[in-house]
Write a protein that binds this DNA or RNA. Structure first.
Length: 577
RNA sequence: GCCCUUGUAGCUCAGUCGGUAGAGCACCACCAUGGUAAGGUGGGGGUCACCGGUUCGAAUCCGGUCGAGGGCUCCA
């Protein structure tokens, strides 16, 4: 923890040094804020001209010379008036000074010729900063205070560490992230593509990507039936009546694809599945005896994402949610939540994610639904998290206007967090669609509605998985599980026989009967990250055996065919990672 | 939507001072081919994202549009 604090000081101080360097270059620059962030720092400036990447080099050099000057960081408390006077020409600083709550101290930090309005803390002196343990990374635009209507500032991002070794490790980590980029791997492994000319943000799943997706879907459906869900299918478009009733046209229109007109009516591509599931629910009158209804659908939805927001598979305009809605009585609600949470955890763990944490978001200021409902629902969510022994944080007031929620976040192989599952109450739609069930006492009551996605969306989940496994999917997911490689043409028949044998047992297998040399065949299979290569020649043919080369490069020779088939079968069935 | 960067063959990229395009891989053909990460030879393939301007001449310079990448913002 002490170390964390020290790094924070280093980074924050580094931001000040950078501001000094930038002011040396642009004496008229307006300075704004420059905090420490994960792994580094940034500073936002209003500059007379935009920066180009070459400028980073000059800023870096100036920073290095400031650091080597060994200037102390000095803290000074001043009155508001003094501060205003000192930052006379700094309009953003004026705004910041005015925003400091009455009664709080106004403090300044100076190093050498540079003084900044700052809460601190900082390192003692620039000599604690290492000239060879920081690096400026990028230039980006950022709105003043993050508001779109405010002026665009120039932000410089940097990373800073205690020593050059840590910097090197971090730069290596950035390289790893780049290597695992799902967009890159998707291209290399021929899994999916996006086509600007056919519509940005819309995903094309290639045969190999589709195989992986289907393996995920098959498992998903299987588990849902085992856990008491039913599958439904609903349309992709709905008339404006549906979206008016749901409220989407009032509150979510900017997020929807525009209307298609037909027969004097407006149809909209669905941004969510919920109204459709409600249509099914409302098709008949429900007794409390029918509840809970647990209805799941891999429902493809379309949402308008701003052009700059799209990112590979992680942020798209058309995607398939692994959606489900649970409609239940108030008495059932607690158990249902617990079951949904357990199910989510089971699913995530099945994909090799062990490090899972929860976020509970509670009632915001503006919301619909009775307070008592919010309270019982929120407590049910909290109870479920605690029953499962999950680490969790509470985001007070962070829930949607229509209900509290739990989000689950996982850590991937590189330690990055991704939000996947979400379990959300909805007090809005049951009201708007006038949903009811007849209770024991013969009175019509409103059911609880729980909305949940376990994987989030298949596209996004697939992107996360791809980066998590770096493209080397475990056997149960791999698009091709086994590649059969005869060492020469004369063993083609035996190889064909082995391929057929595995294919008949339901494995995803192919044979390499090309005229490539053995070396090339192995290289190709290796690059495709196929978990098992079966190498066949005379020795194997005579013994009715295979030699198995694993993805790791290890090899075991002369394994009887059925022994290997059993091993493969077990790995797939157990979904071994 | 905004700021910065960027767009050359299916992929990865080179192309200097403006003189109408190149490599490797992939693909196709032929030859070779018995053991663990690329066998050899040859061939096809590009309106240099698009539109306009400057120029005798533009992949190259200028303006615009679209897309992509890095951020910001948004994500009831």
């Amino acid at each position: 923890m002490a170390n964390e604090e020290k790094l924070k000081r280093i980074r924050h101080s580094m931001a000040h040094v950078m501001a000094e360097a930038v002011l040396q270059m642009f004496p008229d620059a307006q300075i704004t804020i420059g905090p420490s962030i994960d792994n580094g720092f940034y500073y936002d400036f209003d500059l007379p001209r935009t920066l180009v990447p070459d400028d980073l080099e000059e800023i870096t050099n100036r920073m290095k010379s400031i650091i080597t000057e060994d200037k102390p960081f000095e803290r000074r408390v001043v009155s508001r008036e003094e501060a205003r006077k000192l930052f006379e020409k700094q309009t953003y600083k004026q705004e910041l000074i005015n925003a400091i709550p009455e009664g709080d101290e106004v403090s300044l930090y100076s190093q050498g010729g540079f003084t900044d309005l700052c809460r601190g803390p900082h390192v003692e002196s620039t000599k604690e900063l290492k000239a060879d343990a920081f690096k400026l990374l990028s230039i980006a635009g950022a709105y003043w205070r993050g508001k779109e209507t405010n002026p665009m500032l120039t932000r410089i991002y940097g990373t800073a560490w205690e020593n050059p070794k840590e910097l090197r490790l971090y730069m290596k980590h950035l390289e790893d992230i780049e290597k695992r980029d799902h967009r890159k791997l998707g291209k290399e492994l021929d899994l999916f593509s996006l086509h600007e000319e056919a519509g940005p943000g819309l995903v094309y799943w290639h045969p190999k990507g589709a195989r992986i997706r289907l393996a995920i879907e098959d498992f998903w459906r299987d588990q849902h039936y085992k856990n008491g869900y039913e599958m439904v299918f609903t349309p992709h478009v709905g008339k404006s009546w549906l979206w008016e009733t749901s409220g989407h046209l009032d509150f979510y229109k900017e997020g929807m694809y525009p209307a298609m007109e037909m027969d004097k009516a407006n149809y909209y591509a669905k941004p969510m599945n919920c109204p459709f599931h409600i249509m099914i629910y409302n098709n008949t009158k429900h007794s409390y005896r029918d509840l809970p209804c647990r209805w799941a659908e891999l429902g493809t939805v379309y949402r308008y994402e701003k052009a700059g927001a799209m990112h590979g598979l992680l942020r798209v305009r058309g995607f398939t949610q692994d959606d489900a809605h649970v409609f239940c009585t108030p008495e059932q609600m607690g158990d249902e939540i617990l079951e949904v949470l357990r199910f989510s955890l089971y699913m995530l763990r099945s994909f090799g994610f062990q490090d899972i944490s929860a976020y509970l978001s509670t009632q915001p200021a503006k919301s619909v639904g009775e307070k008592s409902k919010w309270d019982t629902a929120t407590e049910a969510l909290r109870g479920a998290i605690e029953a499962e022994g999950l680490e969790y944080e509470v985001d007070e007031g962070g829930g949607a206007f229509y209900g509290p929620k739990i989000d689950l976040k996982i850590k991937d192989a590189l330690g990055r967090q991704w939000q996947l599952s979400t379990v959300q109450f909805d007090f809005n739609l049951p009201e708007r669609f006038n949903m009811t069930f007849v209770d024991r006492d013969g009175i019509e009551k409103q059911p609880f509605m729980i909305h949940r996605a376990l994987l989030g969306s298949l596209e996004r989940f697939f992107g996360v998985l791809l980066e998590h496994y770096a493209g080397a999917f475990p056997a149960w997911l791999a698009p091709e599980q086994v590649r059969v490689i005869p060492v020469a043409e004369s063993f083609g028949d035996y190889a064909e026989k082995v391929v057929k044998l595995f294919k008949d047992q339901g494995f995803r297998v192919s044979g390499d009967f090309s005229t490539d040399r053995l070396n090339a065949k192995i290289r190709n299979a290796q690059k495709e990250k196929i978990p098992f290569m079966l190498i066949l020649g005379e020795k194997e043919m005579e013994a009715d055996a295979v030699s198995v080369r694993y993805r790791s490069g290890k090899q075991e020779n002369g394994i009887p065919i059925d022994v290997f088939a059993d091993l493969l079968k077990k790995q797939v069935e157990n979904r071994e990672n």
